[in-house]
């Protein structure tokens, strides 16, 4: 699947979140990692790619077909993807099982029994089967994020979009969730992920996009961006975050 962005811009009121973003992601770019300082535009770009927002300027296309712009088309587009947020965003009034089953039944029109079976299969893979009947408030952050990940990928999405999935977790839980994401990367799942975990980005990414001030400072294979950054901004950022 090829994704092209040409001169894409996005504003929130007076704040320019993205400006003149032009990148091409090819079929080989299975794992794309967005890095850069906070407020640099990573989440906005992820939301544009996932159809949660529409661009104010420029054009986005997938396999040569322009991204949808009307709400019904966008909804259909979003249904093909899976989204994971920093703060898990599980539905607190539903059990872990219902959090996964509800979208399968109501959005993807699965039979309830098939949805249950699929939910159990996914959570077993994530080592969460014992927690299926629990509500989010009864689970730790890491457990909630694993359930949220199970929900995001239960319908086998074309692209999994992960917005700083480990930022709200302690180091141990962070490692557990990153292990799961690494497994997904290896299994061939197409993933676009924004993160501050440079070790993970270097190890798993096919392509790294560095965003700062809403602009793409650098975009290329992980090895090139981390070992031989062309931009001074990227060099300074990496030297700071890799220092400790």
């Amino acid at each position: 699947m090829r994704t092209d962005l040409e001169h894409v811009g996005k504003r929130y009121g007076d704040t320019r979140a993205l400006a003149d973003v032009t990148i091409s992601l090819s079929e080989e770019d299975q794992v794309v990692v967005l890095i850069g300082p906070s407020g640099g535009g990573k989440s906005t770009l992820l939301r544009l790619l996932g159809g949660l927002e529409t661009a104010d300027e420029g054009a986005l296309s997938r396999n040569g077909i322009e991204f949808p712009r009307t709400e019904p088309e966008l909804r259909e587009f979003r249904r093909q993807n899976g989204f994971l947020f920093q703060a898990f965003n599980l539905f607190p009034h539903l059990s872990a099982l219902e959090n996964i089953v509800l979208p399968l039944v109501e959005v993807h029109h699965w039979e309830r029994n098939a949805a249950h079976a699929r939910a159990e299969e996914v959570v077993e893979r994530f080592g969460m089967k014992a927690h299926l009947s629990k509500r989010p408030a009864e689970m730790s952050g890491g457990q909630q994020q694993r359930i949220a990940l199970a929900r995001a990928m239960a319908h086998s999405p074309a692209t999994l979009l992960l917005d700083e999935p480990t930022s709200a977790l302690d180091p141990e839980m962070k490692a557990e969730v990153l292990d799961l994401i690494e497994d997904l990367c290896r299994s061939g799942q197409r993933i676009v992920l924004s993160t501050h975990e440079m070790g993970f980005a270097r190890q798993c990414a096919d392509t790294v996009v560095f965003l700062s001030g809403g602009r793409v400072e650098e975009c290329g294979p992980a090895k090139d961006v981390f070992d031989h950054p062309c931009s001074e901004t990227v060099r300074q950022f990496l030297s700071k975050v890799m220092k400790w």
């Binding site: 979003r78 993807n81 989204f83 509800l102 109501e106 959005v107």
Partner: peptide, 25 residues
């Protein structure tokens, strides 16, 4: 807002968001 965002990301329509996410809470 995070609940609305999550519902949108899942692909719920506005009516489904009210029915399954917002009203029960």
């Amino acid at each position: 807002q995070s609940q609305w965002l999550s519902a949108r990301a899942i692909g719920f329509s506005e009516a489904q968001t009210y029915r399954f996410v917002v009203i029960p809470q």
